[in-house]
């Protein structure tokens, strides 16, 4: 139950999280899932990033490129495109606008 509420809340903002990770440095799928995990977003089943990556690619927010990885073999690394940078800025601005009143309402309720 808790898990499903969390993953539902996450659904809307996951695109933004994925874009933000890729913005820091280009990553391939496995790296991306490990980074999301280490940030604390363990709710994302690792596989779910792939439909997201495909959609972001289709919409031109990221692009993939085959490159040799640190461990050797070729991996498809994802880079943020110009459109991707703009989209991330928009998502961050929207998140700020949303999170402030939501925090006040849901968390401030107890303290007030």
């Amino acid at each position: 139950m808790n898990m499903s509420i969390r993953s539902q809340l996450l659904k809307g903002i996951l695109d933004g999280c994925v874009l933000a990770v890729i913005e820091k440095e280009p990553v391939y799928g496995y790296e991306l899932s490990q980074k999301l995990l280490s940030i604390g977003l363990a709710e994302v089943s690792e596989g779910t990033i792939y439909p997201i990556l495909l959609r972001l690619q289709k919409n031109g927010l990221i692009r993939g490129e085959m490159r040799p990885s640190e461990s050797g073999p070729n991996r498809k690394y994802y880079f943020l495109t110009e459109t991707g940078h703009e989209a991330l800025e928009t998502i961050i601005a929207e998140w700020k606008q949303l999170s402030k009143p939501v925090n006040e309402l849901l968390i401030g309720r107890r303290e007030g």
Binding site: Y28, G29, Y30, G47, Y50, G64, P73, R75, K76
Partner: peptide, 10 residues
């Protein structure tokens, strides 16, 4: 094929 390869690598 690209996404299948990514899934396999993962």
């Amino acid at each position: 094929e690209e996404v299948l390869m990514e899934l396999l690598d993962h």
